[in-house]
């Protein structure tokens, strides 16, 4: 029964799907740019993702993957806010360890991004949001092309000074909720100086989603990343 079986007799013009960071899809077309958003619980990752979707959805074909601690909460938030049609939002289940799913074992996230491209593509951009985790959580380069680390002023103005892989190495550091700084006694100047010391030339954005400019600076940075990705 096993002499002439399906593995030896199977022929296909398409190769099997890509393994991880390949820049092309199985059919040879260029895949979407993938940007990860990580950071501590409550720093405003999901709100930033929602604001980015609002800002970019008219000019780009985009989709979102969430990695929640409790299965689908962040995805449900994005659905309630109606920032994208439901078929453009995928939730990955993380077994109580969201950092594992974005760094050590990225297979479920890779499947989610590939399925989104297959089902609603072609896509320009996929935002991969980490579940709220700690300061050491970063995305694997096998999963995303660039990553944003989101912290907030209410989490303590010493976070940039403490460093850690997220603050130090993320392609963009976002210091969120600047409107709260006077109320929680956070010193924005000190945060900026500490971030500069930790990150040298890597960019930092101070943002208040309630302010006039909202997510505009981060959206511009994303546009820049996309232009660079397309030029590569």
């Amino acid at each position: 029964m096993h002499l002439d079986h399906s593995l030896s007799s199977s022929h296909s013009h398409h190769g099997p799907s890509a393994i991880s960071a390949d820049a092309h899809r199985p059919d040879g077309s260029r895949r979407a740019l993938r940007i990860g958003l990580g950071g501590p619980v409550g720093s405003g990752k999901t709100a930033t993702v929602a604001a980015l979707c609002h800002a970019l959805r008219d000019e780009l074909s985009l989709a979102v993957v969430t990695n929640d601690i409790y299965t689908r909460e962040d995805a449900e938030f994005l659905l309630r806010e109606a920032v994208l049609p439901p078929e453009r939002i995928a939730a990955v289940e993380t077994g109580a360890c969201p950092h594992t799913a974005i760094r050590d074992d990225i297979s479920a996230n890779l499947e989610a991004v590939e399925d989104l491209e297959d089902e609603v593509g072609p896509l320009d951009l996929i935002l991969v949001e980490s579940g709220g985790d700690n300061l050491t959580a970063t995305f694997s380069k096998g999963l995303v092309d660039a990553q944003i680390f989101v912290i907030d002023v209410a989490g303590g103005d010493d976070i940039p000074r403490k460093g850690g892989p997220g603050v130090t190495t993320a392609d963009l550091l976002v210091v969120n909720k600047t409107d709260l700084a006077p109320y929680v006694g956070s010193d924005l100047g000190r945060m900026a100086a500490d971030a500069k010391a930790q990150r040298a030339e890597l960019p930092v954005v101070f943002q208040s989603l309630r302010g006039d400019k909202g997510v505009a600076a981060v959206a511009d940075w994303v546009r820049g990343q996309l232009a660079a990705w397309r030029a590569r």
Binding site: V92, G95, C97, A101, D105, A108
Partner: peptide
């Protein structure tokens, strides 16, 4: 257990 094949998310 760290072989990256998705097992960590299943109980």
């Amino acid at each position: 257990g760290r072989f990256p094949a998705g097992g960590h998310a299943h109980s």
